[in-house]
């Protein structure tokens, strides 16, 4: 049979052990409570204002991430659309125009009646302009024009379309100034002054009436080598064209005169190229002169920009002037 031995514990020891256990329990609870009070709970306001502060500091890459975080954790917040829009703007400012256009497209598809959706149309158009896709930029504005009833927005669309056509007219061989004028004429009287429509119309008129060189006349003058270049105020080219053509003509004549028709024919053939080239160059110079004149005037275009006021849900109009 096994015997069990029990150690005898003194009452004092028992008392001390009990107090130590109780102390440990209370200290542990206090430490845990302290840890819980130090835990940070991010509210929608905190997250949004942090993302917005990054956006205002032009740290667009980080702002984009933080706005995405805001949308992920607070999808029901009323500022979600603004966050979406600012993601698009952040992408735009990072010159990721394709991604920006896609982001603005998502905003447009999500909600129709929202100030940020309206701005998204304009910004998507601008993103396509920056990608040199003028056709898409115009299509977006035309689509927006079809669905909006707001006369102020319509006027802004007309202005942007006019500016698009003016910008397109800066490209060689493109003349869309009549289209630009047509859209400017559609801007309502109430907004015409604010949107500087009259200045743009005057600019178009000035570009249309700028002193031009007649390409046909330049070609006719070029029958005398260098005459066409002289007419187009290209005096060095005129001297070179006259000297070279005269020299080659004289060389061909001398070769024939000296009984060397083969050499005369070769020189004559080369001279034909230079003679044709000087006529072509004169006509081309007249066209280039006219284009340069137009671009010089159109580059003075008043550059009206629009942006969203993040604090007051309003729209800013900015006015820049290119010198």
């Amino acid at each position: 049979m096994r015997k069990f031995y029990y150690a005898r514990i003194k009452p004092v020891t028992c008392f001390l052990v009990s107090w130590a256990a109780a102390g440990l329990f209370f200290f542990g609870t206090a430490i845990l409570a302290q840890a819980e009070t130090q835990q940070l709970v991010i509210s929608p306001d905190m997250q949004f204002s942090y993302a917005d502060s990054l956006y205002k500091k032009a740290d667009y890459a980080t702002a984009e991430v933080e706005f995405k975080r805001f949308i992920h954790f607070f999808p029901g917040d009323p500022r979600t659309m603004e966050a979406e829009f600012k993601i698009g703007m952040a992408l735009f400012y990072q010159e990721r125009f394709y991604d920006a256009a896609r982001q603005f497209d998502e905003i447009i598809r999500k909600e129709k009646q929202n100030p940020f959706t309206r701005e998204a149309y304009f910004m998507q158009s601008k993103a396509f302009i920056r990608m040199d896709n003028w056709g898409y930029a115009q299509t977006i504005l035309h689509n927006f024009l079809k669905i909006t009833d707001d006369p102020d927005i319509q006027d802004r669309i007309y202005l942007d379309l006019a500016r698009l056509h003016i910008q397109a007219s800066r490209q060689p061989g493109t003349d869309e100034l009549d289209d630009a004028r047509r859209f400017l004429e559609q801007i309502s009287q109430a907004n015409a002054k604010n949107l500087k429509a009259a200045e743009l119309a005057a600019l178009i008129k000035e570009a249309r009436t700028a002193p031009q060189k007649n390409p046909v006349l330049a070609g006719l003058f070029a029958i005398i080598p260098g005459g066409g270049f002289f007419y187009c105020e290209r005096y060095k080219d005129a001297v070179a064209a006259f000297g070279l053509n005269a020299g080659l003509m004289l060389a061909a004549y001398t070769a024939f005169d000296n009984g060397n028709p083969a050499l005369g024919a070769v020189i004559g053939f080369v001279e034909t190229g230079f003679y044709s080239g000087s006529i072509y160059g004169a006509v081309s110079a007249a066209h280039k002169h006219n284009h340069v004149q137009r671009v010089r005037i159109l580059n003075r275009e008043f550059n009206l920009g629009t942006t969203i006021d993040p604090d007051h849900q309003g729209v800013f109009f900015s006015l820049n002037h290119r010198f």
Partner: peptide, 18 residues
């Protein structure tokens, strides 16, 4: 060929400043 001749005529002259 005509365009090449035209370019050689203009090379390094007025075109440079325009």
């Amino acid at each position: 060929w005509v365009m090449a001749c035209d370019r050689i005529l203009r090379c390094g002259r007025n075109e440079v400043s325009l």
